[in-house]
Simulated scan of single mutants.
Amino acid sequence: MRVLLHYDMEFPGADGLDVVSCPQEDDERFAELLPEAEVIWHNLRPLTAADFDRAPKLRLVQKLGSGVNTIDLDAAEARGIAVANMPGRNAQAVAEATLLLMLAALRRVITFDARTREGRGWPAGGALVGGELKGRTVGLLGGGQIAGLVRGTLEAIGARVLYTSRTRRPDDPAWRELDDLLRASDVLSVHIPLTDDTHHLLDARRLALLPPGAIVVNTARGAIIDEAALVAALSSGRLGGAGLDVFEQEPVPPDNPLLALDNVVVMPHVAYLTRETWDRYFDTAVENCRRLAAGEELLHRVR
């Protein structure tokens, strides 16, 4: 079975699979490989109807991760191409990266890193004093596996954790309606999928509900937050900082105004990127290829 791994990563090999890799940014090579592909192991570069039309043998798009917003699901379904994802396979890595971004924003790591490299030594005065998670209220936008892992760690170090979710849980004392969650959150962390309903869910009005000096962390999808509104809130000092792994446009362009702010910590959508995550990805991807060949039900089929 010919598998197109749409990422510049070495695959350790598996019986019955002919896996060829292609960097996500190499569209020319990708187009050359599509005609023979029976399965695409998909990461982040969007897959369109035009891509599917170049792949007459394609039977399965296997998302390496959970979010399928980068796949034209209707076009895949119309062509008889199955789509599956991997919920939870990157949860540990993303949860740890979330904590990394929270702490980096609170402790002003970017500013201190720059000062240290410039030989500026210890800061004078209290302008650069950081903060601790212990004693702060952290609001989690989402109640899934990643949010659960983040919650457990935060509570272990003394933070108060609240959350909201699509399913109302009024009997849980930690659950809040979205606007009430925002009003209470010294740190807000995003853990929901991008859908039509969640696009720009955190707009100017909702960002204004956060307490002055609050920190916003996003390891989910960039367009859940209105970036223009976030830039305005950060630039004015209304918000204290942000830790962002995702952006509305990816790869993030160098002129994105968020990159010019020294109270913003950024990563290029790599919260999931650990060796352990890739081992789990490959295990699931190989199993679904086996199931596809055997005519068995796929794991975590989306369409």
Rank of each mutant, 00 (worst) to 15 (best):
H6R: 09
G13N: 11
G13M: 13
D15N: 13
D18V: 08
V20Q: 10
C22M: 01
Q24C: 08
Q24G: 12
D26M: 15
D27Y: 10
D27A: 13
E28K: 13
F30A: 04
L33P: 10
P35I: 02
P35E: 03
E38V: 09
V39M: 12
V39D: 11
L44D: 07
L47V: 09
A49W: 07
D53E: 15
D53W: 06
A55F: 00
A55N: 02
R59K: 13
R59D: 09
R59G: 14
L60R: 01
G67F: 00
V68G: 00
V68Q: 00
N69T: 02
N69P: 05
T70C: 01
D72S: 04
D74E: 13
E77S: 00
R79P: 01
V83D: 00
N85W: 00
G88S: 07
N90W: 00
A91I: 11
V94T: 05
T98G: 14
L100Y: 12
L100D: 12
M102G: 08
M102N: 08
L103F: 06
A104D: 14
A105P: 03
R107G: 02
R108F: 01
V109H: 05
I110M: 10
T111S: 02
A114D: 08
R117H: 15
W122A: 12
W122F: 12
G125E: 08
A127L: 12
G130P: 00
G130T: 04
G131H: 10
G131C: 08
E132R: 10
E132N: 09
K134L: 05
G135C: 07
R136L: 14
V138Q: 04
G139S: 13
L140R: 14
L140H: 07
L141E: 03
G142V: 04
A147N: 12
G148V: 14
L149V: 10
V150R: 06
R151A: 15
T153M: 12
L154E: 11
A159K: 12
R160P: 06
L162N: 13
R166T: 05
D171C: 02
L181R: 11
R183W: 05
S185G: 15
V187M: 12
V187S: 11
V190I: 13
H191F: 03
P193Q: 02
T195K: 00
T198A: 04
T198K: 06
L201K: 08
L207I: 06
A208S: 12
L209E: 11
P211A: 09
V216F: 04
V216G: 13
V217P: 10
T219F: 01
G222M: 03
E227L: 14
E227I: 03
A228L: 11
V231N: 09
V231C: 15
V231A: 10
A232Y: 13
A233Y: 02
A233N: 07
D245M: 07
F247P: 05
E248G: 06
P251T: 09
V252F: 04
P254L: 10
D255K: 05
A260I: 08
D262F: 00
V264N: 08
V266E: 11
M267F: 04
P268M: 01
H269A: 00
Y272D: 13
T274P: 06
D279E: 15
F282L: 14
A285C: 03
A285G: 07
N288Q: 10
E297F: 04
L298P: 08
L299N: 09
V302Q: 01
